[in-house]
């Protein structure tokens, strides 16, 4: 990808080729993620185009940081994935009730997924968890936890709603979970130490 540091026609050709690659990835990524968004084909392609355009700008700005430790494409595609996530976050709130973050924890043990099979007293445990969500979290922690963990709102969408960013929302989520763990422990429940799931 020396062409990005070239000039003239070679540079233009290289940029055009790179944009085409990024757009291909953006379209694929948009389609991979768009399942529940209810967006139409042209809207999705619009998101892909914008994501590819912005990713290209990011790649051009940061190409000097590329150290050759991975394929250039993998390094560059990160920016596409990040842009697609951010742009889809913008579309997330359309067609959704505005009060999504007001409750939700009351429906905790619902049909969403199986009740933990290794927790015998799960009824009491859910009660304790619900009480901790209600009583022990700050308002912001509760909103973040309910929206992201219970209601599955994408973090970037929620960050946008808060006028914040992903990093900051993650920090709040992290603190909320740690608080809930400690509340459950204080109430005599031992939360699982760690997931065996590989990232």
């Amino acid at each position: 990808m020396d062409g990005l540091q070239a000039t003239g026609a070679r540079y233009q050709e290289c940029v055009a080729r790179l944009h085409a690659l990024l757009l291909r990835v953006a379209r694929h990524e948009v389609s991979r993620r768009s399942g529940s968004l209810g967006l139409s084909g042209p809207e999705l392609d619009d998101v892909a185009q914008q994501a590819a355009d912005d990713a290209l700008m990011a790649v051009k700005a940061k190409v000097g940081d590329f150290r050759g430790e991975s394929r250039f494409t993998t390094w560059a595609y990160r920016f596409v994935v990040l842009e697609v996530s951010s742009k889809l976050g913008r579309h997330f709130w359309r067609n959704r009730p505005a009060d999504l973050d007001q409750d939700g924890w009351e429906r905790l043990p619902d049909e969403r997924s199986p009740v933990p099979h290794d927790v015998v007293e799960h009824g009491e445990l859910w009660d304790a968890l619900g009480a901790a969500i209600r009583d022990d979290l700050t308002d912001l922690q509760r909103r973040v936890f309910v929206a992201i963990v219970l209601n599955g709102v994408p973090m970037d969408a929620f960050a946008r709603e808060l006028g914040s960013n992903r990093n900051a929302v993650y920090k709040v989520l992290f603190d909320a979970r740690r608080r809930l763990r400690s509340s459950l422990a204080a109430a005599g429940y031992v939360a699982p130490a760690r997931s065996e799931e590989r990232a």
Binding site: R112, S113, P114, V115, P116, H117, D118, V119, L125, L129, V149, L150, F174, R177, R178, L180, R181, L184, A191, P192, A193, R194, S195, E196, E197
Partner: peptide
Amino acid sequence: MNGPTQLERLLGDDPDRS
């Protein structure tokens, strides 16, 4: 192990445990 339970999914892994 049958993968993470719902509680693990809700609370994530323990940040204070090594």
